[in-house]
Design a protein around this nucleic acid. Sequence first.
DNA 1: ATAGCTGCAAATGCTTTGCAAGGCC
DNA 2: GGCCTTGCAAAGCATTTGCAGCTAT
Lengths: 139, 139
Amino acid sequence: MADLQPNSDAMKSLRAVGLRPTRQRMALARLLFGQGNMHVTAESLYDSAQEAGIQVSLATVYNTLHQFTTAGLLRQVVVDSSRCYFDTNVDEHHHFYFEESGELADIPSEFIRSMAPMDLPAGTELSRIDIVVRLRSNG
Amino acid sequence: MADLQPNSDAMKSLRAVGLRPTRQRMALARLLFGQGNMHVTAESLYDSAQEAGIQVSLATVYNTLHQFTTAGLLRQVVVDSSRCYFDTNVDEHHHFYFEESGELADIPSEFIRSMAPMDLPAGTELSRIDIVVRLRSNG
DNA sequence: ATAGCTGCAAATGCTTTGCAAGGCC
DNA sequence: GGCCTTGCAAAGCATTTGCAGCTAT
Protein backbone atom coordinates (compact mmCIF):
# COMPACT_ATOMS: atom_id res chain seq x y z
CA MET A 1 0.00 0.00 0.00
CA ALA A 2 1.51 3.32 -1.03
CA ASP A 3 -0.64 6.28 -0.10
CA LEU A 4 2.25 8.47 0.99
CA GLN A 5 2.04 11.91 -0.55
CA PRO A 6 5.41 12.08 -2.31
CA ASN A 7 6.31 15.59 -1.25
CA SER A 8 4.14 16.53 1.69
CA ASP A 9 5.56 18.70 4.44
CA ALA A 10 5.47 15.79 6.84
CA MET A 11 7.52 13.69 4.47
CA LYS A 12 10.06 16.44 3.96
CA SER A 13 10.44 16.99 7.71
CA LEU A 14 11.02 13.33 8.31
CA ARG A 15 13.53 13.00 5.53
CA ALA A 16 15.27 16.12 6.80
CA VAL A 17 16.02 14.42 10.11
CA GLY A 18 16.92 11.09 8.56
CA LEU A 19 13.80 9.17 9.48
CA ARG A 20 12.15 6.98 6.91
CA PRO A 21 8.73 8.49 6.19
CA THR A 22 6.48 5.58 6.98
CA ARG A 23 2.72 5.81 7.05
CA GLN A 24 2.60 5.78 10.86
CA ARG A 25 5.28 8.40 11.33
CA MET A 26 3.73 10.68 8.73
CA ALA A 27 0.31 10.39 10.32
CA LEU A 28 1.67 11.10 13.80
CA ALA A 29 3.75 13.99 12.47
CA ARG A 30 0.63 15.54 10.98
CA LEU A 31 -1.21 15.18 14.25
CA LEU A 32 1.67 16.68 16.18
CA PHE A 33 2.79 19.49 13.91
CA GLY A 34 -0.30 20.20 11.86
CA GLN A 35 -2.02 22.59 14.22
CA GLY A 36 0.29 24.74 16.29
CA ASN A 37 2.12 23.78 19.47
CA MET A 38 0.93 20.75 21.36
CA HIS A 39 1.67 18.92 24.58
CA VAL A 40 1.06 15.20 24.45
CA THR A 41 1.68 12.00 26.30
CA ALA A 42 2.11 8.70 24.52
CA GLU A 43 -1.37 7.73 25.61
CA SER A 44 -2.99 10.99 24.54
CA LEU A 45 -1.35 10.88 21.12
CA TYR A 46 -2.41 7.28 20.74
CA ASP A 47 -5.98 8.26 21.53
CA SER A 48 -5.88 11.12 19.05
CA ALA A 49 -4.64 8.72 16.42
CA GLN A 50 -7.46 6.30 17.15
CA GLU A 51 -10.02 9.08 16.85
CA ALA A 52 -8.48 10.17 13.58
CA GLY A 53 -8.80 6.63 12.30
CA ILE A 54 -5.05 6.12 12.11
CA GLN A 55 -3.82 2.59 12.62
CA VAL A 56 -0.86 2.67 14.99
CA SER A 57 0.11 0.57 17.94
CA LEU A 58 0.92 2.15 21.28
CA ALA A 59 4.44 0.74 21.08
CA THR A 60 4.97 2.56 17.81
CA VAL A 61 3.70 5.78 19.33
CA TYR A 62 6.30 5.42 22.08
CA ASN A 63 9.02 4.63 19.58
CA THR A 64 8.02 7.51 17.36
CA LEU A 65 7.92 10.03 20.19
CA HIS A 66 11.43 9.06 21.21
CA GLN A 67 12.73 9.11 17.65
CA PHE A 68 11.23 12.55 17.11
CA THR A 69 12.74 13.72 20.37
CA THR A 70 16.17 12.41 19.45
CA ALA A 71 15.80 14.08 16.07
CA GLY A 72 15.05 17.39 17.77
CA LEU A 73 11.47 17.65 16.56
CA LEU A 74 10.10 17.24 20.08
CA ARG A 75 11.15 18.04 23.60
CA GLN A 76 10.45 16.06 26.72
CA VAL A 77 8.89 17.84 29.66
CA VAL A 78 9.15 16.38 33.13
CA VAL A 79 6.39 17.55 35.43
CA ASP A 80 5.06 14.35 36.85
CA SER A 81 6.96 11.31 37.94
CA SER A 82 4.42 8.95 36.44
CA ARG A 83 3.98 10.28 32.93
CA CYS A 84 6.16 11.51 30.08
CA TYR A 85 5.07 14.65 28.32
CA PHE A 86 6.30 15.76 24.92
CA ASP A 87 6.16 19.28 23.58
CA THR A 88 6.17 20.26 19.92
CA ASN A 89 7.72 23.59 20.89
CA VAL A 90 11.42 22.89 21.15
CA ASP A 91 12.42 26.47 21.87
CA GLU A 92 13.55 27.45 25.33
CA HIS A 93 10.41 28.12 27.29
CA HIS A 94 8.59 27.08 30.43
CA HIS A 95 5.24 25.68 31.46
CA PHE A 96 2.16 26.03 33.50
CA TYR A 97 1.19 22.65 34.82
CA PHE A 98 -2.41 22.20 35.95
CA GLU A 99 -2.12 19.70 38.73
CA GLU A 100 -5.69 18.52 38.75
CA SER A 101 -6.16 17.99 35.03
CA GLY A 102 -2.59 17.09 34.25
CA GLU A 103 -2.56 19.59 31.40
CA LEU A 104 0.38 21.67 30.29
CA ALA A 105 0.42 25.17 28.82
CA ASP A 106 3.28 27.31 27.64
CA ILE A 107 4.09 30.30 29.81
CA PRO A 108 3.90 33.39 27.61
CA SER A 109 7.24 35.14 27.66
CA GLU A 110 5.83 38.29 29.24
CA PHE A 111 4.89 36.20 32.29
CA ILE A 112 8.49 35.27 32.77
CA ARG A 113 9.64 38.87 32.88
CA SER A 114 7.20 39.89 35.60
CA MET A 115 5.84 36.95 37.46
CA ALA A 116 3.35 38.06 40.06
CA PRO A 117 0.32 36.33 41.53
CA MET A 118 -1.98 38.48 39.43
CA ASP A 119 -0.31 37.20 36.27
CA LEU A 120 -1.47 33.64 36.76
CA PRO A 121 -4.24 32.18 34.61
CA ALA A 122 -7.70 33.02 35.89
CA GLY A 123 -9.10 30.68 38.49
CA THR A 124 -5.73 29.33 39.50
CA GLU A 125 -3.32 29.89 42.32
CA LEU A 126 0.32 29.11 42.66
CA SER A 127 1.07 25.69 44.03
CA ARG A 128 4.82 25.72 43.56
CA ILE A 129 7.52 26.80 41.19
CA ASP A 130 10.07 24.15 40.37
CA ILE A 131 13.33 24.96 38.73
CA VAL A 132 15.65 22.17 37.78
CA VAL A 133 19.06 22.99 36.41
CA ARG A 134 20.13 19.92 34.50
CA LEU A 135 23.84 19.37 34.22
CA ARG A 136 26.00 16.98 32.30
CA SER A 137 29.70 16.43 32.64
CA ASN A 138 31.74 18.34 30.10
CA GLY A 139 34.34 15.76 29.19
CA MET B 1 9.76 -5.68 71.75
CA ALA B 2 10.02 -2.16 73.06
CA ASP B 3 13.36 -0.56 72.29
CA LEU B 4 11.93 2.83 71.43
CA GLN B 5 13.77 5.61 73.21
CA PRO B 6 10.88 7.26 75.05
CA ASN B 7 11.82 10.84 74.32
CA SER B 8 14.21 10.83 71.38
CA ASP B 9 14.06 13.64 68.86
CA ALA B 10 12.75 11.28 66.22
CA MET B 11 9.91 10.24 68.47
CA LYS B 12 9.02 13.82 69.27
CA SER B 13 9.02 14.81 65.59
CA LEU B 14 6.73 11.95 64.70
CA ARG B 15 4.31 12.64 67.51
CA ALA B 16 4.35 16.30 66.55
CA VAL B 17 2.93 15.48 63.12
CA GLY B 18 0.49 12.91 64.40
CA LEU B 19 2.30 9.78 63.26
CA ARG B 20 2.62 6.88 65.61
CA PRO B 21 6.33 6.45 66.35
CA THR B 22 6.90 2.88 65.27
CA ARG B 23 10.31 1.30 65.11
CA GLN B 24 10.47 1.53 61.31
CA ARG B 25 9.38 5.15 61.15
CA MET B 26 11.82 6.17 63.88
CA ALA B 27 14.69 4.38 62.19
CA LEU B 28 13.91 5.95 58.82
CA ALA B 29 13.48 9.36 60.43
CA ARG B 30 16.93 9.06 61.96
CA LEU B 31 18.45 8.13 58.62
CA LEU B 32 16.68 11.01 56.90
CA PHE B 33 17.01 13.80 59.40
CA GLY B 34 20.02 12.76 61.42
CA GLN B 35 22.74 14.19 59.21
CA GLY B 36 21.78 17.36 57.39
CA ASN B 37 19.79 17.66 54.18
CA MET B 38 19.38 14.60 52.02
CA HIS B 39 17.91 13.63 48.70
CA VAL B 40 16.63 10.08 48.52
CA THR B 41 14.56 7.75 46.44
CA ALA B 42 12.57 4.92 47.96
CA GLU B 43 15.15 2.48 46.72
CA SER B 44 18.13 4.47 48.00
CA LEU B 45 16.57 4.88 51.42
CA TYR B 46 15.74 1.20 51.49
CA ASP B 47 19.37 0.39 50.67
CA SER B 48 20.62 2.73 53.40
CA ALA B 49 18.31 1.01 55.85
CA GLN B 50 19.64 -2.39 54.86
CA GLU B 51 23.22 -1.24 55.32
CA ALA B 52 22.35 0.20 58.70
CA GLY B 53 20.88 -3.15 59.68
CA ILE B 54 17.37 -1.80 59.93
CA GLN B 55 14.59 -4.24 59.17
CA VAL B 56 12.07 -2.52 56.90
CA SER B 57 10.25 -3.65 53.83
CA LEU B 58 10.36 -1.62 50.63
CA ALA B 59 6.60 -1.15 50.81
CA THR B 60 6.96 0.43 54.23
CA VAL B 61 9.66 2.74 52.93
CA TYR B 62 7.25 3.92 50.24
CA ASN B 63 4.46 4.35 52.73
CA THR B 64 6.69 6.19 55.15
CA LEU B 65 8.05 8.57 52.52
CA HIS B 66 4.52 9.51 51.54
CA GLN B 67 3.37 9.89 55.11
CA PHE B 68 6.35 12.12 55.89
CA THR B 69 5.64 14.14 52.76
CA THR B 70 2.00 14.60 53.67
CA ALA B 71 3.07 15.60 57.15
CA GLY B 72 5.36 18.26 55.72
CA LEU B 73 8.61 16.65 56.84
CA LEU B 74 9.66 15.89 53.27
CA ARG B 75 9.18 17.40 49.86
CA GLN B 76 8.88 15.59 46.58
CA VAL B 77 11.16 16.61 43.74
CA VAL B 78 10.28 15.77 40.16
CA VAL B 79 13.29 15.60 37.89
CA ASP B 80 12.90 12.27 36.23
CA SER B 81 9.76 10.64 34.99
CA SER B 82 10.80 7.22 36.19
CA ARG B 83 11.81 7.88 39.79
CA CYS B 84 10.45 9.79 42.77
CA TYR B 85 12.92 11.86 44.74
CA PHE B 86 12.34 13.15 48.23
CA ASP B 87 14.15 16.04 49.83
CA THR B 88 14.54 16.60 53.55
CA ASN B 89 14.84 20.32 52.89
CA VAL B 90 11.27 21.55 52.67
CA ASP B 91 12.15 25.21 52.26
CA GLU B 92 11.73 26.88 48.92
CA HIS B 93 14.83 26.08 46.92
CA HIS B 94 15.97 24.53 43.66
CA HIS B 95 18.23 21.77 42.47
CA PHE B 96 21.13 20.70 40.38
CA TYR B 97 20.33 17.41 38.76
CA PHE B 98 23.26 15.36 37.52
CA GLU B 99 21.82 13.55 34.56
CA GLU B 100 24.38 10.76 34.36
CA SER B 101 24.45 9.79 38.01
CA GLY B 102 20.88 10.70 38.81
CA GLU B 103 22.05 12.67 41.84
CA LEU B 104 20.49 15.82 43.19
CA ALA B 105 22.13 18.75 44.93
CA ASP B 106 20.66 21.93 46.32
CA ILE B 107 21.46 25.09 44.43
CA PRO B 108 23.08 27.51 46.86
CA SER B 109 21.03 30.67 47.01
CA GLU B 110 23.85 32.83 45.64
CA PHE B 111 23.70 30.80 42.42
CA ILE B 112 20.11 31.80 41.96
CA ARG B 113 20.90 35.50 42.19
CA SER B 114 23.58 35.39 39.50
CA MET B 115 23.38 32.30 37.42
CA ALA B 116 26.18 32.27 34.87
CA PRO B 117 28.00 29.39 33.21
CA MET B 118 31.02 29.98 35.45
CA ASP B 119 28.86 29.38 38.51
CA LEU B 120 28.13 25.77 37.65
CA PRO B 121 29.75 22.96 39.61
CA ALA B 122 33.22 22.09 38.33
CA GLY B 123 33.33 19.59 35.51
CA THR B 124 29.77 20.18 34.45
CA GLU B 125 28.03 22.11 31.76
CA LEU B 126 24.48 23.25 31.43
CA SER B 127 22.15 20.76 29.79
CA ARG B 128 18.91 22.58 30.34
CA ILE B 129 17.05 24.67 32.86
CA ASP B 130 13.51 23.55 33.51
CA ILE B 131 11.04 25.73 35.29
CA VAL B 132 7.60 24.38 36.05
CA VAL B 133 5.01 26.66 37.56
CA ARG B 134 2.54 24.36 39.22
CA LEU B 135 -0.99 25.68 39.55
CA ARG B 136 -4.09 24.52 41.28
CA SER B 137 -7.56 25.89 40.99
CA ASN B 138 -8.45 28.34 43.75
CA GLY B 139 -12.02 27.31 44.48
C1' DA C 1 16.91 -7.17 -1.99
C1' DT C 2 17.54 -5.49 2.36
C1' DA C 3 17.87 -2.50 6.03
C1' DG C 4 14.67 -0.47 8.68
C1' DC C 5 9.86 -0.28 10.73
C1' DT C 6 5.64 -2.04 12.83
C1' DG C 7 2.76 -4.62 15.90
C1' DC C 8 1.84 -7.78 19.19
C1' DA C 9 2.60 -9.76 23.43
C1' DA C 10 5.60 -10.49 27.01
C1' DA C 11 8.82 -8.38 30.09
C1' DT C 12 10.43 -4.67 32.92
C1' DG C 13 10.78 -1.31 36.68
C1' DC C 14 8.83 1.52 39.93
C1' DT C 15 5.02 2.02 42.83
C1' DT C 16 0.68 0.69 45.09
C1' DT C 17 -2.52 -2.40 47.29
C1' DG C 18 -4.91 -6.37 49.87
C1' DC C 19 -4.78 -8.79 53.65
C1' DA C 20 -3.15 -11.40 57.66
C1' DA C 21 -0.07 -10.88 61.52
C1' DG C 22 1.97 -7.85 64.74
C1' DG C 23 2.76 -3.53 67.60
C1' DC C 24 1.52 0.92 69.92
C1' DC C 25 -1.56 3.43 73.07
C1' DG D 1 -8.58 -4.41 73.24
C1' DG D 2 -8.77 -1.80 69.32
C1' DC D 3 -6.92 0.58 65.77
C1' DC D 4 -2.98 1.59 63.24
C1' DT D 5 1.14 -0.30 61.00
C1' DT D 6 3.93 -3.73 58.82
C1' DG D 7 5.33 -7.09 55.46
C1' DC D 8 4.78 -10.01 51.90
C1' DA D 9 3.22 -11.10 47.58
C1' DA D 10 0.39 -9.89 44.02
C1' DA D 11 -1.48 -6.33 41.23
C1' DG D 12 -0.98 -2.00 38.61
C1' DC D 13 0.63 1.25 35.37
C1' DA D 14 3.55 3.40 32.09
C1' DT D 15 7.10 2.16 29.28
C1' DT D 16 10.37 -0.95 26.82
C1' DT D 17 11.78 -4.97 24.31
C1' DG D 18 12.06 -9.36 21.35
C1' DC D 19 10.87 -11.06 17.34
C1' DA D 20 8.28 -12.36 13.19
C1' DG D 21 6.30 -10.13 9.40
C1' DC D 22 5.92 -6.05 6.53
C1' DT D 23 7.56 -1.83 3.87
C1' DA D 24 10.13 1.93 1.89
C1' DT D 25 13.96 2.66 -1.11
